[in-house]
């Protein structure tokens, strides 16, 4: 059963077609890798699926429902959470508050509950804070981090915080955009654990990543993009040895030299 399906998904920026006619299916409960050389359209795919960019044409079907032109916040609440390739935390919010932002919809309280500080609000506060702390624990952030600003964390922790914020939406699909970028060895190993852990909770993951070691270790299925088009898909080992894939990466590298 597929949790996400795109049909002929196309996104162009003026002359550049960043995603071209993509048919991508993501199996429920799987970890799917989305790889490809720089500029091949991976981030754009995540942006279109999460509603950040409107699709030029084509459809995004999530859980059987067409979500193509839905608002970002509705897509998020429907169960698609994401992280960002360039970290986007809230400048002046603490670690705990950052996660609580994404718990907003679960408060089940109104502005009047806030003004009157009703018992409903206090219960929700306690409940959501507890949940946020659980999530922080999952990504390896402890008590000592709760009250510091998100942006003052070391780089790897900031990425983890983004994952915790995404998980706070209780998503069924998690889109990770290069989560390992800039991580040191230790953080990298822990990230691998986090991903396994999340997967075990039944959350489907789409992983965009350049670090093949991580892709190899965690993905069940792999989709390769090149110039916005789907080059091939299949198990990682097949993709890795596919001459077209090698050429796409090497061609890119040669051009860079």
């Amino acid at each position: 059963m597929n949790i996400l399906e795109t049909k002929g998904l196309t996104k162009s920026f003026g002359g550049v077609t960043a995603n071209s006619n993509l048919d991508i299916c993501i199996k429920k409960g799987s970890v799917t890798g989305l790889i490809g050389p720089n500029g091949s359209g991976k981030t754009t795919f995540i942006n279109v699926v999460s509603g950040v960019y409107p699709a030029t044409s084509g459809k995004v079907i999530f859980d059987g429902k067409d979500i193509t032109s839905l608002d970002k916040y509705k897509i998020a609440r429907a169960g698609i959470a994401r992280t960002f390739q360039t970290i986007r935390l809230f400048e002046r919010l603490s670690v705990l508050e950052t996660v609580l932002v994404a718990r907003h919809a679960s408060y089940g309280a109104s502005i009047w509950d806030a003004v009157l500080s009703t018992s409903r609000l206090r219960a929700a506060n306690a409940r959501e804070e507890a949940r946020a702390k659980e999530l922080l624990e999952i990504v390896g952030l402890g008590k000592q981090h709760y009250d510091v600003l998100g942006n003052s964390l070391p780089y790897g922790y900031r990425r983890s915080l983004e994952i915790a914020r995404a998980l706070a939406l209780e998503p069924s699909l998690l889109l990770l955009d290069e989560p390992a970028a800039g991580m040191n060895r230790e953080e990298f190993n822990f990230l691998q654990e986090i991903i396994q852990n999340v997967k075990q909770q039944g959350i489907t993951i789409l992983l965009v990543e350049h670090t093949m070691e991580l892709v190899e270790a965690v993905v069940d299925h792999c989709v390769v993009l090149n110039y916005g088009q789907k080059l091939t898909e299949g198990p990682f080992c097949d993709c890795e040895s596919d001459p077209r894939v090698i050429e796409a990466y090497l061609g890119k590298e040669e051009a860079e030299c």
């Binding site: 998020a76 609440r77 986007r88 806030a114």
Partner: peptide, 25 residues
Amino acid sequence: RITNSFIGRAFMAMRDDELAAECSG
């Protein structure tokens, strides 16, 4: 009361990064 609540947090999230706030629901 408002700014110290979940509503104020949404305000501040929106202020600091509108896109990230929306993607957080």
